[in-house]
Amino acid sequence: MTNDNVVPRHWWRDLRLVAHQVKYEQMAFWINRVGAVFTVGFSVVFLVMLGLSAGNQRNASLGDVRLVQYYVPGFIAYGVMAAGFTTLAITIVVRRETGLLKRLRLSPLPTWVLITSIFLSTLMVALAQVAVLIVIGRFAYQVPFPSSWPALLVAVLVGIVSFSAMGIAISCAVPNQETAGPVTSIVFFILLFLAGLWFPLPPGSGLAKFSNYLPVRHLMTAMDRSFQIPRGTSPWAWDDLLVVALWGIGATLISLRRFRWSPRRS
C-alpha cells in the first residue's frame, strides 16, 4: 500500500469537478430564492424606487449629474456586495451549522474546487444583476451604458473576490444560524449608509473622510468611474480598487486563521 494511494488526477478532471459543483451552487442559489431576493431583487427594487423619486433631480456635489446616474453604478456595487458579503456569509453559516460543510470536507471534493466554485457561482449571480441594472438604467432612466466595459468588469471581479473574502471572514464570527441574517445585514446596511449609497455624501465631510477607510465607498467610486462620471477622467479607478483589494486580503488572512468546518462544540 504505497504507490497507488496518491492517485494522480489530471487537472482537467478537476476542472470538470469545478463545473459540476458550480452547477449545483447555481441551482442552490436560484431554487433557494432567499439569496436571489437579497441580491438581484433588492438592487432592482431600490434602483426603480430611487430612480422614480429622484426623477431628473441633479446633485451639485456629484458634479451636477442626474441623481439616477449616481444610483445605477451605486446599486451595481450594492448587488456585488450583497452577493459576496451578505448572501455568502449567511450561506456559509447555514452550511456549517447544519453539517453540510463537514460533509463536503469529508468527501473527496478538494477544498480549492469548493472555494473556486463558490466564487464563480457568486460572480455569475453578480454579472446577472449587473446586466439587469444596466438595462433598467438605460431603458427606464436613460442612463448611458458604461463608457468602459472592461473597467466595469474588473471592478465587478475585484469587488466579488474581496467582498466574498469579507463574507467568509464575518461568517467565522457569527455563532449560529439564527444570528447569521441579522448580524450580517446590520453590518452591511450600516456600511452602505456610511458610504452614502442612498444619500450621496458631501465631499470633504467627516463621514466622507471616514468612509475612505472602508471598502464600500471605494467600490461604488470604481463602478461610477467605469461609467465615466465626472467626464474627462480615466474609467480605471486603480487606487479605489486597491483599497477594496486590501480589505479582501485582510479578510482572507482572518478566514485562514478562523475558518471552521463544523459547529462549535457545546
Binding site: 453539517g99 463537514k102 460533509r103
Partner: peptide, 12 residues
C-alpha cells in the same frame, strides 16, 4: 460518512 446531524439541503 454518516454524520449525527442531518446534513442535506432541504430544497433539493
Amino acid at each position: 460518512v454518516v454524520l449525527q446531524e442531518l446534513a442535506v439541503e432541504p430544497f433539493f
